[in-house]
């Protein structure tokens, strides 16, 4: 039942595409931001093309490089996706958190480990299995998402997730959402791997960009199916683990140094 029924596309693809490219050229001509547009045209998936299972987006977290006390990835996520940082929320226990910093300590050795915890984008996601309406789903390119058009807010996925990755939006958002990131009251949400950025062709997530900008380089995002991608190369070099590997969920987020 996980197959998605093909929709009849009424969009005439090629004229539409031409118009977009034309628009892009015009934008470049106007010199508003030619660099961004050229990059997008060069590396992005064409906008009328569906996400493909040839790609599997994933992330490598190098916990040995993740700095204690730094939460740049969390701030970047909240800015990109428009969720209120928990420190600013009036209801911290009910505030959604798409990504959070986790401090681990070994009670025997006192050794501390820092890492960001987010949706692990399982290949076998328990949240997708339990969702009664199919609103919780895995996109062809491995991103686990909530379709808010069919989410009824039952929270069964939150009960099923072993990583506490999901949050319910507990209060009205009063039009504070980002135009690219719809989210709303009564629906469940979680990390989307910045799907709006991926579809735009940015090729990176806000959290990984922020981590690199801060000089930590603890987060590496990329296509795990492409053997030539940076993430695949690093995954071959570094020993990595999956959190709760015993559950055998085949995670899209791998950790080094835990």
């Amino acid at each position: 039942m996980s197959e998605l029924k093909p929709m009849s596309d009424q969009t005439p693809a090629s004229p539409e595409r031409r118009r977009f490219v034309g628009g892009a050229a015009a934008a470049a001509g106007l010199a508003i931001a030619p660099g961004v547009m050229l990059h997008q045209v060069a590396h992005g998936r064409p906008e009328e093309q569906a996400a493909s299972s040839a790609v599997r987006w994933g992330m490598l977290v190098d916990a040995t490089k993740c700095a204690a006390g730094c939460d740049d990835c969390v701030t970047a996520c909240s800015t990109e996706n428009g969720w209120t940082p928990v420190a600013e929320s009036k209801h911290p226990k009910q505030a959604p958190q798409w990504i959070r910093k986790l401090e681990l300590q070994d009670p025997l050795t006192q050794v501390e480990t820092n890492l960001p915890m987010l949706c692990q984008h399982c290949a076998e996601p328990p949240c997708v299995d339990v969702c009664p309406t199919g609103a919780s789903f895995k996109r062809a390119d491995g991103i686990v998402l909530v379709n808010r058009h069919t989410c009824i807010g039952c929270r069964y996925c939150m009960m099923a997730c072993p990583y506490k990755a999901r949050s319910l939006v507990h209060e009205p958002l009063n039009d504070t959402q980002k135009p690219d990131v719809p989210r709303g009251i009564g629906c469940v949400e979680s990390c989307t791997l910045c799907v709006q950025k991926i579809d735009r062709g940015d090729g990176n997530t806000a959290c990984a960009e922020a981590c690199t900008a801060a000089g930590h380089n603890a987060l590496l995002f990329g296509d795990m199916n492409d053997p030539e991608s940076e993430i695949s190369k690093r995954l071959r070099e570094l020993p990595t683990k999956q959190v709760r590997a015993d559950l055998n969920l085949n995670l899209g987020v791998r950790y080094h140094g835990i």
């Binding site: 969009t11 539409e16 996400a51 062809a140 379709n147 808010r148 579809d199 735009r200």
Partner: peptide, 8 residues
């Protein structure tokens, strides 16, 4: 949402 097709 489901396929990631973002035609305008």
């Amino acid at each position: 949402v489901i396929e990631g097709v973002r035609t305008k």
